[in-house]
């Protein structure tokens, strides 16, 4: 277990989560369609996700990734803290680096918080059957759409959800490009492209995830 191994786990799981989030966002986009089309599509889609054996494996990988990402982030942070036991009285990090890069841990904690609430609302209800039971739609699929839609009409929840998509953007922007570097991508021109791709990717995800609940809420 060394510096490279720990960082690579974080980078590898991070990249995997980055890919997952694209899929997740595309599913969320269904919510923007008119309700009569969206409900069926959305529920069919989520049923497929739950029942396809390959996707099931991917789902377990996903849980594992989140777990490892968090555990290794904690391990790395412990090591980093011990490498710098005394802090500077004045440290103008803003002059030499981005705020996000200096605060990935803080951003990560916010996202973890979000994730817990998020999972409690969806995953726990649908998969574990906790809380009020979820009905079926016309096609006989579990009516996940109803769960989502009702949550997205809860003002507090929408505010919570949309606000926390801001730290998500910052976390992804720094995370994506530094994951590539951690895994050894060092082509000079490529790194410049990567920096731009990261900004675009992070913006799309952050704005995309953040704006959908608002649209649903105000529709």
């Amino acid at each position: 277990m060394n510096l490279f191994f720990r960082r690579s786990i974080i980078a590898g799981t991070g990249l995997f989560l980055c890919i997952f989030m694209i899929v997740h966002l595309s599913a969320n986009c269904i919510l923007l369609l008119p309700e009569e089309i969206a409900r069926g599509m959305y529920n069919a889609y989520s049923t497929t996700l739950r029942e396809n054996p390959i996707i099931k494996i991917v789902a377990y990988l996903l849980y594992l990734s989140i777990l490892l990402h968090v555990i290794y982030a904690i391990l790395v942070t412990f090591r980093n803290r011990s490498a710098k036991p005394d802090k500077y009285a004045i440290n103008k990090t803003e002059d030499n680096s981005s705020w996000a890069s200096q605060n990935m841990g803080l951003l990560g904690i916010l996202l973890l918080l979000f994730l817990i609430v998020h999972l409690a609302n969806f995953w726990a209800r649908i998969k574990l059957g906790m809380g009020a039971s979820v009905g079926l739609d016309a096609a006989g699929n579990v009516d996940v759409y109803e769960v989502t839609s009702s949550l997205f009409h809860n003002g507090f929840y929408v505010l919570f959800y949309s606000l926390l998509m801001i730290p998500l953007g910052f976390h992804l922007n720094h995370g994506l490009k530094s994951a590539f570097k951690t895994l050894g991508f060092y082509h000079r021109k490529g790194l410049k492209v990567l920096a731009r791709v990261s900004v675009i990717y992070a913006s799309i995800l952050s704005v995309g995830f953040g704006i959908i609940p608002l649209i649903v809420y105000f529709k």
Binding site: V76, S82, K84, H174, K181, L191
Partner: peptide
Amino acid sequence: GHCSFTGACEVECPEGISIANIA
């Protein structure tokens, strides 16, 4: 500690050595 690519080092490096070296 670990490198988390904040990029502060290449800004403070008197010789401007690029962080791409770490990658």
